[in-house]
Amino acid sequence: MCWVRDVDEDGVEDLAFGCPIGLGGSVFVLGSRRAAKITTIEPSMQEGLDFGHRIDISSSFGTQVCAVPDQDGDVLDDLLVAGTSFGGARGAQAALSVVSTKTWKIVRVVVDRELAKAKSDK
C-alpha cells in the first residue's frame, strides 16, 4: 500500500494497494478525497503484454506496491508492483512491474538476473 501522485487532480495524493490473489492479482487505485476507486490494474486483462516473461493469472501481482519517479518518460511518477513472473527453465521468479500512472499499463518488467542470464544464453 502506498501513496501515489494526485491522479484525479483534486489536490490530494491518492492511494494504491495490492490484492495479490484471485486471477493473478490486481492493484486498486483510490482517490483520497472521495475514497472512490479510480482504476483497477489487472495484468490478466491487459492484452499484448510481452516482455519475455508472463505476468498472468498465477502471478501474485500486487504483493507489494511502491511509488517511484517517472520511468516511462511522461514526467509523471509511476508505480512499482512486485509479484512473480513465469518463463524460462527456472519457473516462477520474483518480478517487478513498472506501471504507468497515465495509462495504467505495465510498461516494463524486471525479473531475477539468473532468469535473464538463462534467456540470454539461449
Binding site: M1, E13, C19, I21, G22
Partner: peptide, 28 residues
C-alpha cells in the same frame, strides 16, 4: 494486512493509519 501510517488528514482518510484487508474475490 498492510498498514500505512500518516500524521494528518489526507482527503477522506482521516486518522492515524489505514489497514488494508484483502479478500479472495479480488476486492478489497
Amino acid at each position: 494486512v498492510e498498514l500505512l501510517g500518516f500524521s494528518a488528514p489526507h482527503g477522506r482518510f482521516v486518522g492515524d493509519a489505514i489497514a488494508v484487508r484483502r479478500v479472495r474475490a479480488g476486492g478489497g
